[in-house]
């Protein structure tokens, strides 16, 4: 008789559905399928899909590769820490190290150009949270994640760490400059 008593009909699974339930199940099922295929559709036609290109790495190995790019393409340094600003050519591999408690180096990219951005951590988990665009990617130590990025707007972007990484977590902010497409002409 009720949900807290055993069903009165012994063969409850033969009890017919009410129309309201049947209709709703059909509608809900269709919606579920739309949502499922939407993810696949976006992989085929959308422009924002997170790369899964990943390599096992170590802090030393990753820092070495990042240092090589920094040595080659540094254009200036900023802040009291003399953080290098790296402006690699379009299409190239760029590196960003996450560590307690900064992102290193600062990058300078060009709008509309594509880069292979390598992310890894030297210590704990960190979060790559690009603001104000609001793109968020997890950074896991021991894994080198290669994300292909194409900045679509110029400006100064911040990279906020949004994975808790200890007492200095709130000071961990990095920067990416995106120069306008016309910037080179001037």
């Amino acid at each position: 008789m009720s949900a807290i008593l055993p069903p009165t009909e012994r063969l409850w699974w033969k009890h017919p559905l009410d129309r309201v339930e049947g209709t709703w199940i059909a509608i809900a099922f269709v919606w579920c399928m739309i949502m499922f295929f939407m993810m696949i559709y976006w992989h085929a036609y959308g422009k924002q899909n997170l790369s899964t290109e990943t390599y096992k790495t170590t802090p030393e190995m990753f820092a070495g590769k990042a240092q090589a790019v920094v040595d080659k393409y540094t254009v200036r340094t900023e802040t009291d820490l003399e953080t290098p600003v790296v402006a690699p050519p379009p299409g190239s591999d760029v590196y960003m190290i996450a560590r307690l408690w900064n992102f290193w180096p600062i990058l300078e990219l060009q709008q509309g150009q594509t880069y292979r951005l390598h992310l890894s951590s030297m210590d704990y988990n960190h979060g790559f949270s690009l603001q104000p665009a609001n793109i968020n990617i997890q950074i896991v130590p021991g894994y080198e994640h290669v994300v292909t990025v194409t900045p679509n707007q110029s400006g100064t972007y911040s990279v906020v760490c949004n994975e808790f990484c200890g007492i200095g977590h709130h000071t961990m902010v990095g920067r990416i400059y995106v120069k306008a497409e016309t910037g080179n002409v001037k």
Binding site: T79, G127, N134, C161, E163, G168, H170, V173
Partner: peptide, 24 residues
């Protein structure tokens, strides 16, 4: 969160950070 504010974060003013970000 839609504006990007981080969870598990002590200070949205980023006091002491070399390159602070200004939230809207």
């Amino acid at each position: 969160g839609t504006l990007g504010v981080a969870r598990r974060h002590w200070d949205m003013a980023f006091s002491g950070a070399a390159l602070a970000y200004e939230w809207p």
